[in-house]
Design a protein around this nucleic acid. Sequence first.
DNA 1: TCCAAAGTTTACGTTTACGTAAAGGTGAAA
DNA 2: TTTCACCTTTACGTAAACGTAAACTTTGGA
Lengths: 141, 141
Amino acid sequence: MTLQNKITKKTYGISELSKEFDITTRTIRFYEQQGLISPTRNGQTRIYSEKDRVRLMLTLRGKRLGFSLAETKELFDLYDTTLEGDEKQLNLILGILSEKRAELDQQLQDIQRVQTELNLVQDRCQKALDEVLNKKKSKSA
Amino acid sequence: MTLQNKITKKTYGISELSKEFDITTRTIRFYEQQGLISPTRNGQTRIYSEKDRVRLMLTLRGKRLGFSLAETKELFDLYDTTLEGDEKQLNLILGILSEKRAELDQQLQDIQRVQTELNLVQDRCQKALDEVLNKKKSKSA
DNA sequence: TCCAAAGTTTACGTTTACGTAAAGGTGAAA
DNA sequence: TTTCACCTTTACGTAAACGTAAACTTTGGA
């Protein structure tokens, strides 16, 4: 790494990113092919900007939330066109945003419910375990 | 529906469930094939119990949270063996439960971040829209 | 100068979660 | 009795998200 790079590092290599996010280079190239990131080139080698890195991060976050790559790309595209959009475009975007918001609210509910269920299972499991241990104890006593 | 059914309804037909959850019968049969539900039969026709219905609900909830069918089945199986498990089994279950808990916590963080991002996009979008409308206004004035 | 590491493209393979059609059984109503 | 709606099994098809292998170029070191 050059000194210049240490100071004003703005670009990344493909394996660098793959290590940072623990994904394969294949995955990164696939995301590019799907239009999620747009690295420039140095010769034939891909150069990733900070924007690419952020988008990669957002894509992975979206995945954890069950967003498809197409959905994530849609959001990226909408974001990109926000500044140049006309009235119809902008209203469309606002609509989609409220849809996403509703999805997220649903997910929050889901998570809360699953968490309480996990609590029940854990209690049940802990009690069963306690019983087993008690039996052991009384045997050894 | 018979009177008896109205009072102590404990079973469901496949299309009844498919309508309630807005999924196809194919999906329900597929979940059975994957071991997620175990309806009894009346002749060759499937009869679903309340337990089946609940599991179907939980399966769909899991899907919304990005759980694979295999993962959901694993949780079901763990739950079923909780009452008869030995010490190792129970500790295994407790471990997996804490893993799931960690995943859910991660998801909560993800959701919060995406929500704040949606807020930013929405603001940006709203401002752009206001500008468009202001231009219209000044033109018509 | 020559090799190994890392990059590239192309393309076929794989898993998950169903869709979709084909071909047939079943019971109630007309 | 025939028709219709609903049920069944079997089985091939499909979209998404990569995995994996082949074959090739480029480049920084020994």
